[in-house]
Each structure stands twice: as structure tokens, then as C-alpha cells.
């Protein structure tokens, strides 16, 4: 195997990993802080893609401005959903099943609303100007847009680290993930924190949708495709573990990339196998110290 191929395949893995992480980070954040398993997170990714399409392709807004606008809009939708519905089932017996059901209802409803608004035809978003080409290294190309995505992914990780570790809202969120009740007793408005975290997480999912739209097909049902893979990443990294999700995404991305290159017939099975192995030997996630057994 020549080195350039290994390199280009590794960059491919990183591209896969970054988009996976951008979706999975929101999922793991909601789980970590709110203990909510948001099965509909992929649907927020999908409406993010549609909002990006609407802003950028239909109304002609600058791509990066569309990205930010999408984040705001999807975040607002997410907060509304949390405020109107999810909030009502917190603390119920058998909450887990109710969460899955409620968020599954979100999937059904959002999919149909998207179909009503945008129809079923495939939509497509062009790459932003300046990011259409590729760098050439020897015989290999690395598309600039993929590098942009990887860069944004790193920026998101650093920003999230800063917020979680160094700012008051971040500390509150981390504290709430450890013990909601005590944080409430200390005078923090826990329901509001939950709504904001949900909004932030769905905004990240939505922005991931816009970022992915120039590389993928914008279509109803696009949310279902990403949710299972993101879930794998979240579980491998440890549910609620932000860094774990990042490392988990890189692991899955690279395994997929080299799986495709060297064992293409079985490539789609690898991520599930990793998941099963991790769940058997270290169910709390590869990158979490806490024990759950």
C-alpha cells in the first residue's frame, strides 16, 4: 500500500468522523445533561439541511450566514419541542420508553411536515464558492470542502471544551448532569437550563445538516440514515461523554474508511461489531471511567 493512499483514506475517515461527530455531539449533550434520549435528533439534522437549502439555494443567502441562521432556527424549533412536549414527561416512571416513543413521534411528524413544505423531490445545495476545488498531493486529491468540514469540526470541539470547562453556563450544565436536584436547590433554573441545552444540541444537529447538504441528498427520511450511526458513536464514546463522542466518531470513521478499502464486502458490519464488543466489555463506553455495572 502506498503512503498517499493511506493518507487520503485517513482524511476520508476524518471527514466521515467529523460529520458523524457534529450530529452525535448534540445527541450526547442532551443525554449527558438531561438524560433524554433524543431519537429524533436525525430529524433536526434533516430540517437543518432543508433550512440551509431554503436560505442558501432558494433565497440566495451567503452559505456561512445560512449556516448560522439555520443553527438559530433549528435551535428555536428544538427549544419549542422541548418546552411543549418533552418537559411534560421528565421524571415519569419508565421514562426511557416514553422518551423513545415521544421522540419517535417527532420523527414521524417532522418527516411529514417536511414533505408538506418542500415536497418529495431531491434537493441539492452547491458547495460554497471558494470550496469547490481540491488540493492535489501527488496523484491524490483532497477536496477543500472536506477540509473545511474537518476544520469546523475541530473548531466546534475547542469551542465546546471552552464553554463546558470555562464558562458558568457550561459549569451549570455539567453540574446538572451529575445531580439535577442539588443544582436546582442551589438556585439554578434547571428547566430553563434543560431547554437551552436542548436548543444548543438541536442547533448543532441542524448546522451539521446544512454542512452535510452540499455532499448529500436533501430528502425526506434523511434523518433516519444518520441516527443509528450517531447512536453507535455516542454509545462507544460513553453516553453523555462529549470527548468520548469525538474520539468514538474518529474511531468509527477510520474503521469505516479502511474497512471499505481492504474488506469492502463487510465494511458495513464493522461499526456494529465494534458497538457490540464495546457494549460487552466496557458498556459505559470506551472513554468513560465511571462504571455502570
Amino acid at each position: 500500500m502506498d503512503a498517499t493512499f493511506i493518507f487520503s483514506q485517513a482524511v476520508s475517515g476524518l471527514t466521515i468522523a467529523t460529520l458523524l461527530f457534529l450530529v452525535a455531539s448534540g445527541l450526547t449533550l442532551i443525554f449527558g445533561v438531561g438524560k433524554v434520549f433524543n431519537f429524533a435528533h436525525g430529524s433536526f439534522y434533516m430540517i437543518g439541511a432543508y433550512f440551509g437549502y431554503q436560505f442558501s439555494a432558494v433565497w440566495g443567502t451567503n452559505f456561512f450566514l445560512s449556516l448560522i441562521l439555520t443553527g438559530i432556527c433549528v435551535g428555536l424549533v428544538g427549544m419549542l419541542m422541548e418546552f411543549l412536549f418533552l418537559r411534560r414527561i421528565y421524571g415519569r416512571a419508565n421514562e426511557g420508553g416514553f422518551q423513545i416513543l415521544m421522540t419517535y413521534c417527532f420523527i414521524l411528524i417532522i418527516d411529514d411536515l417536511v414533505k408538506l413544505i418542500w415536497g418529495t423531490e431531491y434537493k441539492s445545495l452547491a458547495r460554497p464558492p471558494g470550496f469547490q476545488g481540491a488540493f492535489q498531493i501527488g496523484d491524490t486529491f483532497i477536496p477543500t470542502y472536506n477540509l473545511l468540514i474537518i476544520g469546523i469540526g475541530f473548531a466546534a470541539v475547542i469551542l465546546a471544551w471552552y464553554i463546558l470547562a470555562r464558562t458558568r453556563p457550561g459549569r451549570v450544565a455539567r453540574a446538572a448532569s451529575v445531580d439535577r436536584e442539588i443544582v436546582g436547590v442551589l438556585g439554578v433554573n434547571v428547566p430553563l437550563t434543560m431547554t437551552l441545552v436542548f436548543g444548543l444540541a438541536t442547533a448543532m444537529g441542524g448546522m451539521a445538516g446544512t454542512l452535510a447538504a452540499p455532499l448529500r441528498t436533501v430528502t425526506p427520511g434523511a434523518g433516519i440514515e444518520v441516527i443509528i450511526d450517531s447512536l453507535i458513536v455516542v454509545v462507544i464514546g460513553g453516553m453523555g461523554n462529549f470527548w468520548g463522542a469525538w474520539l468514538g466518531a474518529i474511531l468509527i470513521g477510520e474503521v469505516t474508511a479502511f474497512g471499505v478499502a481492504f474488506a469492502p464486502k463487510w465494511a458495513t458490519l464493522f461499526s456494529f461489531m465494534i458497538l457490540v464488543i464495546v457494549l460487552i466489555f466496557k458498556p459505559e463506553g470506551l472513554f468513560t471511567r465511571r462504571k455502570v455495572m
Binding site: 482524511v11 475517515g13 491524490t140 474508511a257 471499505v260 478499502a261 469492502p264 465494511a267 458495513t268
Partner: peptide, 22 residues
């Protein structure tokens, strides 16, 4: 020289593309 089987509705083909380039 190559046979690739991504799953139906696979969103990310990057790794397949780079392998096909090889």
C-alpha cells in the same frame, strides 16, 4: 478491480470514492 457495497441510503461515500480512485 473493485467491488463496493455501501448500504442503501448510505449518506457518506467519501471512503468509497478514495478507494475507487486507487
Amino acid at each position: 478491480v473493485g467491488e463496493y457495497w455501501p448500504k442503501l441510503f448510505e449518506p457518506d461515500y467519501t471512503a468509497y470514492v478514495t478507494s475507487l480512485v486507487r
